[in-house]
Amino acid sequence: MADPSKRPTLPSRPGRRFRDAATLLPVVGVALLITPVMTVFTRADSLFGLPTPFVYVFSVWGGLILLALLLGRRALRINVSK
């Protein structure tokens, strides 16, 4: 939802996109890691000789870290401390 009253000016756009993404990331993490969603992805017992839950949990975890890295660098660029 766009909130026009918050910051209607143009330059805030990258900031807003960053905020949206930063807000969404933990939600995605929660959905993938601590809801029954994870049982959907871990039906098979084994993947490349490794147990599926192990592979699933660690890949999602790694993915979250990677996205957080991209967002974190972006946060530094748009100067979050303002």
């Binding site: 933990p26 993490g29 839950p53 979050v80």
Partner: peptide, 24 residues
């Protein structure tokens, strides 16, 4: 208990990944 130990690390991970919500 198998993978259960991971939960002790996943909680903090989610809090930090979502630093924008609370930690900031």
């Amino acid at each position: 208990n198998g993978l259960e130990f991971v939960a002790i690390y996943l909680g903090p991970t989610l809090v930090f990944v979502g630093w924008w919500w609370l930690l900031h």
